[in-house]
């Protein structure tokens, strides 16, 4: 090999290394732009709202006076709606995912369902609001209540949960299923005792993505009749007399944090912008807590699963 040839090769390698470095730099730049913008916005919001983040802010109802206004009805509303959403969407979504992945025959019908579920995940949320208005509010007469809102958001995140459940189940190697069968497990035993526990972490990720999507929704809730001013709380679910548990809160009118924020932002008085920023910080904190909790549970569960 001549030295000229060798030099050419070296130059070539140099050039490739350069391209490699440039791409890495561009990659870092892109991710910095994305993260710093997000971080900047969040920090600015928290700083703007920090002076309003007092205990009173969490225990007061909305008011026309910015310094007296709080988010009590909004955060309680958001929590209750999310509770209903989680309690309906998670069992339904996971069960549907299990059926589609483990039980249903793989024919044209399954393909059709698969395509539809995936597409549903991308449908704009306002469409779900319209569907819910017709179905829950008018047909089923559930009223403009916490339960209607919870079920609406459950519909909205159902596709996300179904799709991630299926992905999670698909990621479990077939050899595990066969091993379970070989030891005489029935199909249900195989799923319940083996497949589900191993995929629980990934399913949980899907659930959290879904719930995080739901918690910020405004459009579908406005459509079904979420309120803006509400200065009382739903009935307590625990009663002092028999039967001790009450479901009246499901029927209660409600508001949620994003709606309260929007109302404050669009007010003429500028002091309300601070309130909106504070409410936004609370909403972000709630979402992050949910995520953190999920990550922690997932970590705990994965620790126990040893292949």
């Amino acid at each position: 090999m001549s030295s000229a040839n060798l030099q050419k090769i070296r130059a070539d390698i140099q050039r490739r290394k350069l391209i490699n470095t440039i791409f890495a730099l561009v990659g870092i730049l892109v991710i910095m732009v994305a993260i710093l913008t997000l971080l900047g916005l969040t920090i600015q919001m928290v700083i703007e709202g920090s002076s309003r983040l007092t205990p009173d802010f969490f225990t007061s109802f909305p008011s026309r006076r910015a310094e007296r206004a709080g988010i009590l009805s909004a955060w309680v509303g958001t929590s209750l709606v999310m509770l209903v959403t989680a309690l309906t969407a998670v069992p339904l979504g996971v069960a549907a995912g299990i059926y589609l992945e483990e039980y249903s025959r793989k024919d044209w019908l399954a393909d059709l369902i698969e395509i539809n579920v995936t597409n549903l995940a991308g449908v704009p949320s306002i469409i779900y609001g319209l569907l819910a208005l017709g179905l829950f509010v008018y047909k089923l007469q559930l009223g403009q209540s916490v339960i209607s809102a919870g079920l609406t958001l459950a519909l909205l995140i159902l596709p996300v949960i179904i799709v991630t459940t299926r992905e999670a189940l698909r990621a479990i190697p077939n050899s595990l299923r066969e091993a379970a069968y070989a030891l005489g497990a029935s199909k249900w035993q195989m799923i319940w005792d083996h497949i589900l526990p191993y995929s629980f972490g990934s399913i949980l990720t899907g659930v959290i993505i879904g719930l995080s999507r739901a918690i910020g929704q405004t459009a579908p809730l406005v459509t079904i009749g979420a309120l803006t001013f509400i200065a009382f709380l739903p009935d307590s679910p625990i009663k002092s007399e028999f039967p001790y548990i009450s479901f009246d809160w499901l029927q209660a009118p409600f508001t949620v944090l994003p709606i309260q924020m929007f109302n404050w932002v669009s007010r003429p008085e500028r002091e309300f912008e601070m309130n909106a920023a504070a409410a936004g910080s609370v909403l972000i904190a709630m979402t992050l807590t949910m995520n953190a909790l999920a990550i922690y549970i997932r970590y705990q569960l994965r620790k126990d699963v040893k292949w």
Partner: peptide
């Protein structure tokens, strides 16, 4: 239980 209780509450 929720699903069953709702109509009663209405």
């Amino acid at each position: 239980v929720l699903a069953l209780a709702v109509p009663v509450v209405k």
